[in-house]
């Protein structure tokens, strides 16, 4: 039994631009590093969430994307609490893994740090989003060569049909050296936009 799903809202952050439901809402200088871009957005949004500054770039990107997405989606807090989270990327946590590796390569200058090591897992971003919004729903983190809308659709639909979650936060959040890209969308049985993996693929590739 397949269910027709809808998209409630979607958010893209790449090239120092943030867009919601296809409309660009913030654009910063392309030369800004991701860290500086993220810091500016945090300040302008007056987020007042000091944990943000402990996060690695991957979590900062996931966190900011989910902030804009939840703001646009205007979901009831009871629904948010049970939302499933299904995210994916290509580089896993390699951007931070390399930083941890740098602390152990030289035996005479050996300084592994728990503050770095904890971010050497890509699914930490799901934890950060869950803590921020008190989400205790289903979780999964997938890794693929490129954004795999079919895989995400299969898993999101399975969670809804198996009655594990009614709403799913889906997406792709990748940070690798100086490159980053985030795309998140909320799917459920009711929503403002038609959903299919083809529509999602189109939205993703057009930006």
């Amino acid at each position: 039994m397949k269910k027709q799903l809808k998209t409630i809202a979607y958010c893209r952050i790449n090239n120092n631009t943030i867009s919601i439901n296809g409309k660009s809402i913030i654009t910063k200088d392309k030369d800004l590093s991701f860290s500086d871009f993220a810091k500016q957005i945090y300040k302008e949004k007056q987020l007042a969430y000091p944990k943000f500054f402990k996060m690695d770039n991957l979590c900062k990107l996931a966190f900011l994307t989910s902030e804009f997405l939840f703001e646009a989606a205007k979901l009831d807090s009871e629904i948010i609490k049970h939302t499933g989270i299904v995210l994916s990327n290509r580089a896993s946590s390699l951007d931070t893994d390399r930083k941890h590796q740098d602390t152990i390569n030289d035996k005479d200058n050996y300084f592994p740090s728990p503050a770095v090591f904890v971010y050497t897992l890509a699914n930490i971003m799901i934890g950060e989003i869950s803590i921020r919004h008190q989400i205790k729903g289903e979780n999964a983190f997938f890794v693929s060569e490129k954004f795999n809308e079919t895989l995400i659709e299969h898993y999101a639909s399975s969670l809804i049909i198996n009655r594990k979650s009614s709403h799913i936060l889906c997406g792709w959040v990748d940070v690798d050296n100086n490159n980053y890209d985030a795309f998140m969308y909320l799917v459920a049985e009711k929503g403002s936009y038609n959903y299919s993996k083809e529509i999602i693929k189109n939205i993703y590739t057009q930006n």
């Binding site: 008190q134 205790k136 289903e138």
Partner: peptide, 11 residues
């Protein structure tokens, strides 16, 4: 099966 988050602490 079930796979739920604590929404409490990352480590």
């Amino acid at each position: 099966d079930g796979s739920c988050n604590d929404a409490n602490h990352i480590s």
